[in-house]
């Protein structure tokens, strides 16, 4: 392989990682927030797909993609509140509710999304941050969507707030020990419902990216399971918002490896590279059990018990 081909692959992977990782960042951050409060939401795929549909529809009707992003977030809040409230009933399994919310969210999105498959809605404009580069491929790779930057800012704020603010402390305490939270006069059910709703908001925005930026249209095969991967990403990131960005970029790059190799004529194993992020996560889960990663998990989390 020549140096030129290697550069092409690396640039394609960089561009692919940035493009593909944005929805991963949002669902991972949403899931992190929810799990920090001691609950797991396996249904973010529903938020993602519903968010994508709502964002596209609102952008189509109002002409403002940013209004679409906001509406997508609120559709996520709606699903998050449903998930949070149902899980607060006694004896209800939060993992199963997640699967149910996933099928409910996808069903609603497909039901109301039918009329929006054909029409074209205004998309989110990308920021050409690669103007300084002479290499056209690099320029294209650095056409960054503003939501990518928003995601990174949210990750930094969340990381800081979880460690340094009262709200962050309340969320972490609820997630680590329900009795301790109760002793402090905190209502854990309320905290968890709010954390799930806020997490749902973020996942909804991740969906808006899918329909308004990349791939950038609404159809029923839009999501390739990014929402389902949220839980794995969070384990990968050890419940740390900053590492969520890293995890999302890594997943994005792994997913971009296949197409990147194809662009230099290596088409063998394309589909195998699609599986790379999943295999990687499985290995990390196997390697991580019993080590630091398990201890990083919030104590009240059902998958940590």
């Amino acid at each position: 392989m020549t140096a030129e081909a290697l550069t092409t692959i690396l640039i394609a992977m960089l561009g692919g990682a940035i493009r593909v990782s944005t929805p991963f960042i949002f669902v991972a951050l949403g899931e992190t927030l929810t799990e920090k409060s001691g609950r797991i939401n396996l249904g973010l795929e529903g938020n993602l797909v519903l968010g994508a549909m709502v964002a596209y529809a609102i952008s189509f009707h109002t002409g403002s993609p940013w209004l679409g992003v906001l509406a997508a977030g609120f559709s996520g809040v709606f699903l998050g509140l449903m998930h949070g409230s149902i899980c607060s009933l006694k004896k209800v399994n939060d993992i199963a509710v997640g699967i149910a919310m996933m099928s409910f969210g996808i069903g609603v999105a497909f039901f109301f999304g039918k009329p929006y498959i054909q029409p074209s809605a205004p998309r989110l404009e990308s920021l050409p941050l690669g103007g300084w580069a002479s290499n056209p491929a690099l320029q294209q790779a650095l056409e960054i969507n503003p939501l990518f930057i928003v995601g990174i800012l949210i990750a930094i704020v969340m990381w800081w707030a979880l460690a340094n603010t009262r709200v962050g402390l309340v969320v972490r305490m609820t997630g680590d020990s329900e009795p301790a939270a109760r002793a402090m006069g905190i209502n854990p059910i309320k905290v968890r419902i709010l954390a799930t709703a806020a997490g749902g908001f973020l996942a909804g925005i991740g969906g808006a990216f899918l329909s308004l930026s990349y791939p950038g249209s609404w159809n029923e095969g839009l999501s390739s399971g990014q929402g389902l991967m949220a839980v794995a990403l969070v384990i990968f990131a050890r419940w740390n918002p900053l590492r969520c960005i890293l995890a999302a970029l890594l997943f994005g790059a792994a997913g971009a490896l296949g197409p990147a190799l194809q662009s230099v004529g290596i088409s063998q194993g394309y589909y195998f590279f699609n599986a790379a992020p999943y295999i990687l996560t499985l290995f990390i889960m196997v390697a991580a059990t019993g080590s630091n990663s398990a201890r990083a998990a919030p104590g009240e989390l059902s998958i940590a018990k």
Partner: peptide, 24 residues
């Protein structure tokens, strides 16, 4: 009605059913 109607119905059944677990 779109073919996703069945999905909506399934989703509602699933959610209500799991919520009913707390009634045992």
């Amino acid at each position: 009605m779109p073919d996703a109607t069945a999905l909506v119905l399934q989703g509602i059944i699933f959610v209500v059913l799991l919520a009913s677990d707390s009634l045992y």
